[in-house]
Design a protein around this nucleic acid. Structure first.
Length: 404
RNA sequence: GGGCAGGUACCCAAGCGGUCAACGGGGGCAGACUGUAAAUCUGCUGGCUAAGCCUUCGGAGGUUCGAAUCCUUCCCUGCCCA
């Protein structure tokens, strides 16, 4: 039923940052094969941020790989830890969510993750199930299994402490809570980004202290965002959401720096491993075409062939040739007394600008066009009866068809 | 509990009685350019049909002709001491 350990390892190693410890993984794989028992592969998800993007996809794809190798994927929805706050790398305490909210987010997370995982072979558990009933005494006994120095060792805590930034006491418990998850489900392997290394290792520590076999920690690289510098994240707005419209995906992918093209092929696509070296060469020699192929490939993975094709057409049309796209929203202005409407009012009402002030500035900067013609007069009154229908454009990407 | 330093627009951060809708940087938006929604350069970046008015500098009061700037008090954060 299971492939030989060495063969499995070949797939597992691809694209990972670290496997700790690798020899032990081989032993586990071999044992699982002999006993014909799948390994329990754990991935924790943070329901406080329910919008998944390509960065999350890196680790989800790895989990999918384990499923394809016949192992058991367990997705842990951190509904309890979500109420506490915190996750690695966040330097601010997060707003506490109610159990109800985290449940909803968990469901939404799973729906999105199902674009990558095989949902029929994914076990979903909520960690409030075991963390919720714990008594204070249980928590104290758990806390006894590690030391303050060890916890403060975590990068995130260390730097915040050094910079005199606040660290809530409860935040120190977060790694312990996550480790307890591993104990609860008897994880054989835990996946996470490299920023999760500390928490994953804490799982090993606590499992050992509880007399359990220790999990293997597998970390995956953090995908850079569209800016090419910071990690992809929603709060930095440099991300591509898994559920984003194909046109958005395609356009955003073309905006990444050329140096990131290969990186995305490696971590975010299903490109064949054997093709990777070739793609690396092409990315260097003909960045434009290779980037289009990257954009098409990723868009296809999430939206299918047809959508990817039309996304390309859309891009060539609106960005390269600066034409008006097919499907733009229509807006029917509220009737006015004399049948005319001020330009600024129209822009704001149609949702193209956030305020009249913003609209005024954009007009002054030459960003506003009516049927392709640039407008400079912010006091312009438009005669609706005479002009409609017409197309309003703000900047490169905001359009509305004004109808009556 | 005591002492000290802080809390300024999306973020960082100046300002310390009028000239402050508030320097500068980041981010964002726009224009030019480009294979690109990249890079670079330039401009804009609280609201109001607007040379005027309104709201904003942790909260609430107060002093003053006038406060982000001074006083009182409360809340929050960090450091040192206990």
């Amino acid at each position: 039923m299971f492939a030989p350990a060495q063969e499995q390892l070949l797939h597992i190693r691809r694209g990972t940052a670290e496997i700790i410890p690798e020899e032990e993984l081989e032993v586990k794989l071999e044992a699982s094969r002999q006993a014909n028992r799948p390994l329990v592969v754990k991935l924790g998800c943070d329901p406080s941020r329910p919008d998944l993007h390509l960065g999350h996809a890196v680790v989800l794809r790895k989990l999918r790989q384990f499923q394809d190798l016949g192992h058991q994927a367990v997705l842990i929805v951190g509904d309890f830890t979500g109420m506490i706050g915190d996750a690695s790398g966040q330097s601010k305490t997060r707003p506490a969510l109610t159990l109800e909210e985290t449940r909803q987010h968990g469901a939404s997370y799973f729906a999105q993750a199902s674009r990558i995982l095989d949902p029929s072979r994914t076990r979903i558990v909520y960690n409030s199930e075991w963390l919720g009933p714990m008594q204070f005494g249980d928590v104290v006994r758990l806390a006894m299994k590690t030391t303050v120095a060890r916890i403060l060792n975590r990068d995130d805590f260390a730097s915040r402490y050094a910079q005199d930034e606040p660290i809530g006491l409860h935040e120190l418990l977060y790694p312990l809570a996550q480790a307890q998850d591993s104990v609860a489900i008897k994880a054989d392997i835990e996946l996470g980004g490299t920023d999760q290394k500390f928490n994953l290792l804490m799982g090993r520590t606590i499992q050992k202290a509880c007399g359990q076999p220790q999990q293997i920690c597998i970390t995956l690289p953090i995908l850079e965002g569209l800016d090419g510098r910071e990690k992809m994240s929603k709060s930095l707005d440099n991300y591509i959401g898994l559920t984003e419209a194909p046109e958005e995906m395609y356009g955003k992918l073309l905006s990444i720096p050329d140096t990131l093209i290969y990186r995305y092929f490696e971590l975010a696509t299903d490109a064949d491993t054997r093709d990777l070296p070739r793609l690396k060469g092409e990315a260097a020699v003909q960045p434009r075409d290779t980037k289009h192929r990257l954009a098409a490939m990723i868009t296809r993975m999430y939206h299918g062939e047809a959508a990817a094709r039309s996304a390309r057409t859309h891009f060539e049309r609106t960005v390269i040739r600066k034409e008006v796209p097919d499907d733009i929203p229509s807006y029917r202005p509220a009737p006015t007394g004399n049948g005319t409407i001020g330009l600024l009012t129209l822009l704001t009402q149609a949702g193209l600008t956030s305020s009249n002030g913003a609209a005024r500035r954009l007009v002054q900067q030459g960003a506003v066009r009516l049927d392709g013609e640039r407008v400079h007069d912010s006091r312009l009154e438009i005669d609706l009866a005479a002009r409609t229908p017409f197309v309003v454009r703000v900047g490169k990407r905001r359009f509305a068809r004004i109808i009556r």
